[in-house]
Design a protein around this nucleic acid. Sequence first.
RNA 1: GUGCCCGUAGCUCAGUUGGAUAGAGCGUUAGCUUGCGGAGCUAAAGGUCGUACGUUCGAAUCGUAUCGGGCAUACCA
Length: 558
Amino acid sequence: MENLKNIIFEVVKKLYGVEVPVEFAPVPAEIEGDYSCNVAMRLARAAGKAPHEVASEIIAELPADYSYSVAGPGFINIAVSGKALYGQLADAWNETYGYNQSGAGKVAVSEFPSTNMAKPYSVGHLRPGTQGWAAKRILEANGWKVITDNHLGDAGTPFGIWATGFKRAGLDIDKVTIYDLGELYIQMKADMKAEAAAGEHALADAAQDWLLKLESGDEEARTLSERFNKISLDHIHSVMKRMNLSTDYELGESFFVERGKALVKQYLEAGVFTQNDDGSVICPLDEFGIDVPMLMLKSNGAALYATTDLGCMDYRAKEWHPDKVIYAVGAEQKFYFEQLFALAKKIGLPQENMHLWFGTIDQISPEGKREKMSSRKGVVLLEALLDDAEKRVRENFAEAELTDEDVRRIATGAIKYSDFIADRKTGILYDPDKIFALTGQSGPFCQYACVRMRRILEKNAGFEAEFGDYDFAAEKAVLLKLLEFPALVASVADNLEAHKIAGYCFELAQEMNRYYENAPISTALDNVRAARLWVVARAMTVLERGLDLLGIEIPDKM
RNA sequence: GUGCCCGUAGCUCAGUUGGAUAGAGCGUUAGCUUGCGGAGCUAAAGGUCGUACGUUCGAAUCGUAUCGGGCAUACCA
């Protein structure tokens, strides 16, 4: 069809002397034709003619390989035979169908899920993981090299808070879990806030003490710190493994503290940053239209987000030379990243920065209002979510006698897909029945379609025959859908719109289900059977590839 | 106050960058049925695209105003 687009482009240029971009769109159901083109309407005014007349003039110049009609307000509709579509797919098909090399030679960094070490993995880190991973896979499908980095929230203070709370609660170091640590952390933060409000600082001092002890190499502090970090990291790794997520690096905030502070000092001396009377350091961003300066260092000289992120950007630029850096972080931090990216420009970092933001996970309050899920209001822990999902899968697929691995694949498939149903900017209403959906537009629906195709191919394994003069009429809808895939993958790269891939996977799965209704395979004539197996094999590959871009695995059976 | 995001079917959401009669899923109703894997498929009902102007052949989409909701707005991470 690319060829035909070029022909239309040239015809328009020849007839009307203008260059108009030519795009094809699907034709609505119940209207004749497979592709529609709106150039005639775009041209009508310039040509001083009615759209229908323009359309007719263009059609007269087009090759006779397809049939054309003018419809509606002036669309040129192009009808293609099933056989021609088969020819197009056969020509385009190769080992990497759907992928492209537009990003060849370019390097991207995808930062996710950036979990906070102080608390257990919660649904709050679900979206960074799923979206960050999809970003990686989508860019790779477009030829990029992608480096993934888990920017762990491990900077200083949690240890002091943990150690103080741990001692106060008198817990056993050998039995303490991430959930105990999370409780300690939340309780301590609340107590410290109350303490500060009362004008006291005993707990804060104790926490600070522990940090100093750790820095001076105190034995107990070091043992506790190592133990806490191991508990937290083991937990994060265990959850990520269940979600089938991993990153190349785990360079946490603490890794960048000194580097960041040194850079702040350097830019302060260079006059890029300025120091307030209280000792805090800021970076003015007025020239970028941002009237809130970015705070680079606290008044007590301590690092904060901006400090470590500055160090991190510098590190990545020098070590990895990325063309693009993607931060998979929620919408709440949009303003922060606007500032950070302005800062990056100000200090002359060359890479393109992208805040891959997404909406909040909401829940319905007891009063019936929709609101963001938060620790205060009872956050859902990811391990509990996964356990719940697996339990539902086991109950619903009881007869299938699934392996543990397949149960995990289906459960995470459901959870991940639910993240991609809507545009990432749209918030998600947390509803277990929706997140664990096994029917309708869902991960398991798509996985099921894959497994079904795989079985059909297995049962017909080894069968071969010439296609003869088979017309591929029953396959038209499927072939049209398969031909959309490469352009879709390419179109989604810039804005990382994973939901479009998810929508496509659903449509393809649905198209296959419709297809089986009236196109028997095993019992068909040899040439028809062979042709249909050819189509099914390609549909399966495309669906697997689409789901893979979303990080969704295919179970062996279900 | 200012900035950003959003408002589409009972609910949750799409809507291919301005195109045809605004579409899915869930839910509701009615069909199909021992199938190469029916967790599916077919169909029906359900809409003043928050509201009002404007731009043009044409607006859910662009502009202005307005109402409603969410988030952010330097020493929390």
